[in-house]
Amino acid sequence: MNLTQLKKHFLYALLGSTLLTTACDSDNEDNSPKGAYEHGVFITNEGAFGHGNAEISYLLPQTKTVQPELFKQVNNRPLGDAAQSIMFVEDKAYIALNGSNRIEVVNAYSFASTGVINGLEIPRYMVALNSRKAYVTEYVGYEFFGYTGPGRVSVLDLTTNTVSKTIDVGKLPEGLLLHNGKLYVANSDGNTVSVINTTTDAVETTLTVGEGPKFLVLDANQKIWVLRGGYSEAGALVKIDPVNNHAITSYTLPGESLGAGQLTINGAKNTLYYSYGGRIYSMSTTATAAPTAPIIRRDPYGLGIDPETNVLYLGIGDFSSNGWAIRYQPSGTVIDSFQVRIAPNGFSFR
């Protein structure tokens, strides 16, 4: 089986490099491939908590081929427990493992393991300021029956793979976004977004946005959008205007009050795609109200959009068997599907 995988590996490498060469013809610099996995879709499979079966699947949309266990295939060991997210920074990829309390570091082109960042507590999502400095949200104080907090953002030194500073934020911080020298952190077990100055790495201000803010994206008009849920009030999309004293506009989501799902934005950064109440909706960033009709009646565990083609990727599955990455046209028409690994929760496009 190893031999077969190895052969496949070379085949994909070959295919990948051919496509790459074609795609990069117009670039006159170095158009030789940097590795087998320079371009493609990286699917984060969370795995079953406590079972150490998180994985990254690699999908090459042009050939519709999937390498379901990329990390294990390249590194001959399991990735870890409960992969939450992946971040690419230049030639490195960082995978946050919330059940292992660490971030695995791999070469972004070959996916070979190059290091690890320890000393974290339930790391969730990451964002990089540059190739030397990044931030990660952590569920500090998260327990079975009560979130004691505080949540935390750790500052990562990517040159040494260490934590250089920690910043207390609200409870259960999830998504985070860098914009204009500021880091915005959604505190999902509260009603705030913490704003951190990336020069001082201190919380500068805290914005009240309503219950359960979870993910943030930036649109073409430099407005920040927050998807929030809530059990005591209806969820909403919240627009923050960073240049206008962080003025807030709320677009209430129809339906019962529920936790927020996923939020992403298309390549042109003018259409939001989000899940809420087990449905997927799209909304123009210039719309005056949130839509009432979903585009897809499906509850995704992960949601992504290819910035080039605007193809939607849904992660579907349970915690005990292989999940599926299902592709849809932005209109909501299904295209095809690929079997990946357990609980696909996110998609990264390179």
Partner: peptide
Amino acid sequence: MTQRAVFFAYILGLAS
């Protein structure tokens, strides 16, 4: 994501 919360019921109860 809320996996942790149900983990206890889950892992012992069913991941048999």
